[in-house]
Amino acid sequence: MIKYTLRRLLLMIPVILGITFLVFFILLASPGNVAQMVLGPEATAEDIAMKEHDLGLDQPIVVQYIKYMWNALHGDFGTSWFQNFNVMEEFSHRIPYTLSLGFLAIGWACVLGIPIGIIAAVRHNHMTDYVVTFFSLLLSSAPAFWLGMMYQLFFAQKLGWLPASGVGSFKYYILPSLSLGGGILASNARTTRTWLLDVIRSDYVRTARAKGNKESTVIVKHALRNSLLPVITQIGVSFSIIMGGSVITETVYAFPGIGSFLINAVKTKDIPIVMACIVVVAVIVGLTNLVVDLLYAVVDPRVQLGSKKG
């Protein structure tokens, strides 16, 4: 397993290089002179040329890229072009929010989603199943911003139980993480339900019953472990979705994470910020997927990572 992990980590490097170069290139190549956008419409030609030189924009793209990545490797992501601060500093303030929001969202999705899926599978073809399927369809079809606003209107404005925006104590995290995790919750429930239904009908579950196990033991100990395997994979995929979806949720709830950070930077072509966000997100997603794959191997003994046999 160690060898496999190392190999995967090494493979992440070309992936990250590829992504960052692509983004860098697209940002620079798209229309709109950055120096001009920074200085505003009254800037003279000399001003613009000077600014371009300051920002290093007068060099070929590849050179700029290499310079940038070299600095990044040393932890220096530069200064924002439009706003007057050091990117890394701002970033390090914001990333914990997005990460905690993301993990909390996935937390809800698992803690609520999986049991709901189990209940629906066990009570298959009864009313419970229909109700559960209905609500999970509703949640997964609802767009994130709509869901977010509905929560705000209902829980914050109407009932006054939870705050509508901003950060602070734990209660500020509840609504944003629920609206972010809503879709994932639904798909977890559906996947758990589908796989569990499948597994419940399998022979070894029947064997477990034939041995004299309690039904709950059959479900939890025998059936669930087997049906959770695809759910684990799904969670890995969901994490990438959540990192991206946090943009909308963070905007609706005025949550100071890197989602809103990134989207504003893209609009203004503030490359230092965009690159920093992309690099970090790529690394996080890559690591998460690696962890999920390792977890998969731990849970399912049939899975062999890489090729063990010489």
């Binding site: 705000q152 404005q157 925006s165 901003g166 609706v252 005025a254 809103s260």
Partner: peptide, 14 residues
């Protein structure tokens, strides 16, 4: 900073 208009107004009302 709250960029979303609806959020601004809900927060004002609460």
């Amino acid at each position: 900073p709250i960029s979303n208009v609806a959020t601004q107004f809900i927060s004002l009302k609460t």
